[in-house]
């Protein structure tokens, strides 16, 4: 096989900026962000979709960037932790980031970017009315992010492991923002 077949040029819109980068087809979106583009906010915790530290928003959905090939994400729109504050229109910090600080929803900080991106995705899912595994009435779903309770948030955030055990603060922070505005700000 020609060496050329195994590399690609990939265009991504990352945190509102168009970027084009040459990648080894084997490179994941995570490694492309971290090693190729200098965006080290998304973290590599397990590299196998087992911890959630690499969570970013891809086309508005939360995904494990460690399992997305960059080449397959070509044309996609990516939001990483570095772009989260910008979602609020260039504010200093996103409300969720402030809530994480206030509730001490972090210790070592390594899972934190993934937690925050995941929470944004989870709130968007709830805004669509999507149920979780613990929603009492699957058919009815939920009435938006503001309707989530701690039980729901725990389940919806369980794809993000925090070994420091900051779950209580994480749930409180997500609930505070979800109740305030469904995470739309």
């Amino acid at each position: 096989m020609l060496q050329d077949d195994t590399r690609s040029e990939v265009s991504l819109r990352i945190n509102g900026v168009d970027r084009t980068v040459g990648v080894d087809n084997r490179a994941t979106l995570l490694d492309t962000l971290r090693e190729g583009l200098g965006l080290t906010g998304a973290k590599k915790g397990c590299d196998h979709g087992q911890c959630g530290a690499c969570t970013v928003l891809l086309d508005g959905r939360r995904v494990n960037s460690c399992l997305q090939l960059a080449v397959a994400a070509d044309g996609g729109e990516v939001v990483t932790i570095e772009g989260v504050a910008g979602l609020e229109g260039g504010g200093d910090l996103h409300a969720l980031q402030r809530a994480f600080l206030e509730h001490d929803a972090l210790q070592c900080g390594y899972c934190t970017p993934g937690q925050i991106c995941s929470a944004l995705g989870a709130m968007a899912e709830a805004e669509r009315g999507w149920p979780s595994h613990v929603t009492g009435d699957t058919s009815a779903g939920v009435a938006g992010a503001a309707s989530l309770d701690a039980y729901e948030v725990r389940e919806r955030m369980s794809g993000n492991i925090c070994r420091c055990g900051a779950y209580g603060g994480i749930v409180a922070a997500v609930l505070e923002v979800a109740e305030a505005d469904g995470g739309r700000s």
């Binding site: 080290t40 906010g41 932790i81 910090l93 001490d104 972090l106 900080g109 934190t112 970017p113 925050i116």
Partner: peptide, 13 residues
């Protein structure tokens, strides 16, 4: 509040 919290929630750490 953690003095390095901001760096951690923004990915700057």
């Amino acid at each position: 509040v953690r003095v390095d919290g901001r760096a951690k929630v923004t990915g700057a750490a």
